[in-house]
C-alpha cells in the first residue's frame, strides 16, 4: 500500500475536498474493518472511523510520527477500545451478540458464511491476542508499530501473534474452514 504524503493531509486539513476524498477512500476500508472486529457493530465502527478522521483533522501534520496510516490505525484502535470499554457493562460478546446476518460480509453465500466463522473465531480470542491479531492483519501494522502502540515488548508481540494465529488456525481446522 502506497503511503500518502503529509502534503495531502495538510491540504485536507486546509479544506481541500479532493484531498479529503483521497485520504478517506484510501483508509476507510481498513479502519472500518479494524473497528468492526473490535466492536462487533458496524454502526459503532462507522462512528469510530468518523471520529478518527476528525482527530486527523485536528492534529498538525508536523506532529505526525511516522506514517499517516499508522497514526490512523492507532487512533482508531484506541477509540474502538474506549468505546468497547464504555459499552462493556452492557454487552458481553457471546454467540447471541455476534452479527448473525452474513449479509454484513462480502457477497456470495459460501464466502459470507466462511467469513462469519472467521469473525466468530477472532471474537472468541482473549483481548490481548485479538487486539494484536487485528492490528497485524487488519491494521497492517508492523510488529514494531504494534509494540509502540500497545506499549509492550517486541518479544511479547511476536509471542502473542503466534499463539493468536495458532488458536485461530486450530479452531478453523475444527470447523473445516482451513
Amino acid at each position: 500500500m502506497n503511503e500518502l504524503g503529509l502534503g495531502r493531509t495538510a491540504k485536507a486539513q486546509n479544506g481541500d475536498q479532493k484531498a479529503w476524498n483521497v485520504l478517506f477512500r484510501k483508509y476507510n476500508r481498513v479502519l472500518l474493518r479494524l473497528a468492526f472486529l473490535i466492536l462487533g457493530s458496524l454502526d459503532q465502527a462507522r462512528d469510530v472511523v468518523q471520529e478518527t478522521f476528525i482527530k486527523l483533522n485536528q492534529i498538525k501534520p508536523k506532529h505526525f510520527e511516522g506514517k499517516i496510516k499508522s497514526y490512523l490505525m492507532v487512533i482508531a484502535h484506541r477509540l474502538a477500545l474506549k468505546e468497547k470499554n464504555r459499552l462493556k457493562p452492557f454487552t458481553k460478546i457471546s454467540e447471541e451478540h455476534l452479527p448473525q446476518n452474513t449479509d454484513l460480509f462480502i457477497d456470495d453465500q459460501i464466502k459470507a458464511e466462511t467469513q462469519h466463522q472467521i469473525y466468530k473465531t477472532i471474537s472468541e480470542l482473549s483481548d490481548e491476542h485479538r487486539d494484536i491479531l487485528i492490528l497485524k492483519f487488519y491494521g497492517e501494522l508492523s510488529y514494531e508499530e504494534i509494540s509502540k502502540t500497545l506499549n509492550i515488548p517486541m518479544g511479547t508481540v511476536k509471542s502473542r501473534i503466534f499463539y493468536a494465529v495458532k488458536i485461530c488456525k486450530n479452531k478453523l481446522q475444527e470447523k473445516r474452514i482451513l
Partner: peptide
C-alpha cells in the same frame, strides 16, 4: 492460513458517510 484469518471483508466498506472535511 494467515491470509484466511486476515481475509474478512465487509460489504459496506465502500460506504461514504463522513462529513466533507474541514469545510
Amino acid at each position: 492460513q494467515p491470509n484466511v484469518i486476515g481475509g474478512i471483508k465487509l460489504n459496506e466498506e465502500n460506504e461514504f458517510y463522513l462529513l466533507d472535511g474541514k469545510k
